[in-house]
Design a protein around this nucleic acid. Structure first.
Lengths: 227, 227
DNA sequence: GTGTGATGTCAGGAATGCGTCAGGGCGGAG
DNA sequence: CTCCGCCCTGACGCATTCCTGACATCACAC
C-alpha cells in the first residue's frame, strides 16, 4: 500500500488529512513535530511526505534539507500558511516537489498527491515495494522483514520461500513448484526440506506457530499464504 | 540543453516566459494555439511543457489528454487563470504534474519548473551536495569524508564504493552490481575484493567495525547502507 | 476407532558465505 | 631507487544456514 507521512503540528488539520488520505486508500502516519517527522521519514520510508513549514522543534525547511541530505528521495509536498513567494522558491529549491498554501481545497491536495505519486511510480524501479500480510511487513528492497514493527531475521532461503508464496498469494503452491522456484531443482520432493523451512517461517512470523493463520497447509496440495 | 515548450496564446506572457526561461538556460519554443502546441510536443519532444488552458483551437485539457494518449510522458505544468478547484483537480487527474494560477510569481514558476525537471532527470546525480548517514558526512564534491566532525581519509575505491551504496541507500546492492558500478567489470565475483573494501569502510566509519550499524551485510544478497 | 499416508518436528552433520589476514603487484612521491 | 599507500587475491576459520532421515503427530476415509 502506498504510504504517506504527514508532518503537521495542527492536530485537527493533521487528522483531517489523515482521514481523507485513508479514504483514498493510502496508509498514513502523522508526526507532530519536526524531529519526529524526520526520523519517521528516514525510518518508515513513506512514498510521499506532506510537510508543514511551521513546526515545533525542527522547522520544515530544516526537515526537508536534512531529509534530502540523508538520501530521502521521496516526493515532498509542502503545505503551509506561508505564501510569500520567497518561501515557495526556497522550499522548491531545497528539493520539495510541490508547495500548497493554506487554506487549500482537499480535492486539489489529493489530486496533487496523486500526481506526485504517479510520477514517482514511473521512476521507481521495480522491487522496491513493501509487501505485507497480517502483521508482517516485507521490505523486499532491503530484504528486511518485520512483525508488529520489530525486525525479524530471516535466513535467505526462508525469505525466498516467503516471497515465492507471496507471488502466488492466496493460491496453493505445491512443494515441487516451490522446489523449482526457490531451489531451482526440478525434482520430486522426498525429503522434508520445504516443510522444515515452512516450520521456521511459522515460528518466526506466526503468533502461534502450531496454529498458523497465514502460512497455511493445504493437505495433499502444498502451502498457501493467506493475507 | 533542457527543452521547454510553452503553449500560450497571450503573446506578452508567452514571450515574457520565454525570456525568463532562456535566462535560466533552457531552450524554449512557443506555440500559440492548441493544435500547434500538441504537434510540437509530439514532434519536438521537449523535456517539459507549460500549458495554458484557455487556448484558441484545441483547449488545454484536450491538448493534455491527447498528449498523454499518444505517449507523451514529459511533465506538464498547467498555467492558467482558471483557479476553480474543479479545474485544478481535472487538470491534475488528466496527467498534469503541476497547476499554477495566474497571476503568478515568475520566481515561483521557475522554481516549480526546476522541481519538475529535477524529478524527471533521473535521480542519479549525486551532485556536489553533502550527504550523510549516521554520524558520517560526505562532501561528495571535494571527496572529503568526516565522522563526528573529524576528517576521515578514504581511498578512492573506498569512496566510490560508499557512493555506490549511497545511491541505492536502503536497498541491497549485490557484489556483482558493485563490481560493475565501482570497478567496471562484468564478472562473477569469486575473490574477496568487495568484502575487503567493505571491511575497510567499516573500520573507518563504524563505531564498532565488528558490529556495523550502517554498512550492513545481507547474507547471500550483498550489502546495504542504512541511514 | 483404526489405518494410512501426509505433515510437523527435531537434531546433527554438511555445506556455504562472510570476515579477516597476509602477501604481493603496482605506481607515484620523495 | 626506495618507500608507501592502494588494490587485489586466495587461504583460513567461524558462524550461520541448509538439508536430511527418523520419528511423532495429524487428518481423513472407512
Amino acid at each position: 500500500m502506498t504510504r504517506v507521512l504527514v508532518i503537521e503540528d495542527n492536530f485537527d488539520l493533521a487528522y483531517g488529512l489523515r482521514n481523507n488520505l485513508e479514504i483514498e486508500g493510502y496508509e498514513v502516519e502523522v508526526a507532530e513535530d519536526g524531529t519526529a517527522g524526520l526520523s519517521r521519514a528516514i525510518g518508515w520510508l513513506p512514498d510521499l511526505v506532506i510537510l508543514d513549514l511551521t513546526l515545533p522543534g525542527l522547522d520544515g525547511f530544516r526537515v526537508l534539507k536534512a531529509l534530502r541530505e540523508r538520501g530521502g528521495r521521496m516526493p515532498v509536498l509542502i503545505l503551509t500558511a506561508r505564501d510569500a513567494e520567497a518561501d515557495k522558491v526556497r522550499g522548491l529549491k531545497l528539493g520539495a516537489d510541490d508547495y500548497v498554501t493554506k487554506p487549500f481545497g482537499v480535492l486539489e491536495l489529493l489530486a496533487r498527491v496523486e500526481a506526485l505519486l504517479r510520477r514517482g511510480a514511473a521512476l521507481v524501479p521495480v522491487g522496491k515495494t513493501t509487501l505485507r500480510f497480517g502483521e508482517v511487513v516485507i521490505h523486499s528492497g532491503t530484504r528486511v522483514v518485520e512483525r508488529r514493527g520489530a525486525a525479524v531475521s530471516l535466513a535467505p532461503k526462508e525469505l525466498d520461500l516467503l516471497l515465492a508464496l507471496w507471488e502466488r498469494q492466496g493460491s496453493v503452491v505445491s512443494r515441487s513448484e516451490l522446489m523449482r522456484e526457490v531451489w531451482g531443482y526440478q525434482t520430486d520432493v522426498l525429503s522434508r526440506t520445504v516443510d522444515t523451512h515452512i516450520a521456521e517461517l511459522r515460528r518466526k512470523l506466526e503468533a502461534d506457530a502450531s496454529r498458523p493463520v497465514h502460512i497455511l497447509t493445504v493437505r495433499k496440495a502444498g502451502y498457501r499464504l493467506a493475507l
